[in-house]
């Protein structure tokens, strides 16, 4: 290689203006984001990690207490209870919601008249489901004098037991509320179904495959990436579920703590009892749980998600 060639290569190295021409412009465009990233996310992440090893309570200075917060977790029965409540909610609510979403997406997939109207109608609960208004409604629908008991009365079952006031059924009502908001995964499924090439169905039909076989051999495998995507999202989101359990239980966690969702417990510890050190530790446990579940999900996906190359 001649010197001239080397010089030419050197001139083309990443230090030439072409490779990094935009630093100043980037700083201008990213200014707000950089400020937010430092002051409102990265700083707080570090602070939260530090606080989780302290007894900070907003009034006094934080004292380093080592692993005491995490040791407390081991014996904190309310925490254990909240984990059970949240896991039941996720394990029943997420598959339940996705099954309903998938079933309706399949019904709506073919060139059905009024498809857009059905889609909008089924989506509406997703739009409203997170609101306080719907949580208020749920309180009254499942209350002792509520709508559900009134309907049971019509078929001869007379009861004034509140579904929300009873520890055995309270969580069920919130799971039902979660399943009720099946509209958004349904829309994602519909988009996924549209990606499946028609030719596949045509070829399968020509070969004599019936509707069930076509579903099992074409629709389901090609939809697995979407199912996986919905599953990961739904698990992450439902661990953060807060409003409904808070409103329905009046912030208390419900009868016998049957509605003590993880985030509700975190809120009580951090913002009612002002045990902010412990609340920070709880937040990190939540990150670990969500992270671990997502990792397991990705690992399991090798065995059932079909990726088309």
């Amino acid at each position: 290689m001649s010197v001239a060639e080397l010089q030419r290569l050197a001139r083309r190295s990443p230090r030439t203006p072409q490779a990094t021409p935009d630093n100043k412009a980037a700083l201008a465009f990213l200014g707000p984001w950089v400020l937010g990233a430092l002051a409102l996310t990265l700083g707080p992440i570090i602070a939260s990690l530090y606080l989780s090893f302290t007894d900070y309570n907003l009034l006094q200075n934080a004292n380093w207490i080592g692993l005491a917060n995490f040791e407390r977790m081991l014996t904190d029965t309310r925490l254990h209870h909240s984990l059970v409540v949240t896991f039941v909610y996720v394990l029943v609510g997420v598959p339940g919601q996705l099954l309903v979403a998938l079933a309706l997406a399949l019904l709506l997939d073919r060139g059905l008249r009024g498809r857009a109207i059905y889609r909008s109608a089924f989506y509406l609960p997703s739009l409203l489901g997170a609101s306080v208004a719907i949580a208020v409604l749920w309180r009254l629908v499942f209350g002792g004098q509520g709508l559900v008991n009134a309907m049971l009365g019509l078929v001869g079952i007379h009861t004034t037991t509140s579904w929300i006031g009873s520890p055995d059924t309270a969580l069920g009502t919130i799971i039902l509320l979660h399943i009720w908001t099946f509209g958004s995964p349904m829309v994602i499924f519909l988009a996924g179904l549209r990606q499946i090439p028609v030719e596949l169905y045509e070829a399968a039909a020509t070969d004599g495959a019936g509707p069930w076989l076509r579903f099992r051999a074409i629709t389901l495998p090609l939809l697995t990436p979407i199912i996986f995507f919905n599953l990961v999202l739904a698990i992450i989101n439902s661990f953060s579920s807060f409003t409904q359990a808070f409103i329905v239980s009046g912030g208390s966690g419900g009868p016998s703590d049957s509605l003590l969702f993880y985030t509700l417990y975190l809120y009580q510890e951090g913002f009612s009892s002002f045990r902010m050190g412990y609340a920070s530790a709880l937040a990190w446990l939540l990150v670990l749980i969500i992270g671990a579940l997502t990792a397991v999900n990705f690992w399991l996906s090798k065995y059932w998600v079909h990726y088309d190359n």
Binding site: T20, N23, A37, L40, L42, S280, L282
Partner: peptide
């Protein structure tokens, strides 16, 4: 744009999408 620390900045931005709000809410 092309700028210094672009890759780590972009990666960090993606991480914050996944970050539960509960981690930052107490310090904020």
């Amino acid at each position: 744009l092309r700028f210094r620390f672009q890759r780590p900045a972009f990666a960090y931005m993606l991480i914050t999408i996944m970050l539960p709000v509960h981690v930052v809410i107490v310090p904020q």
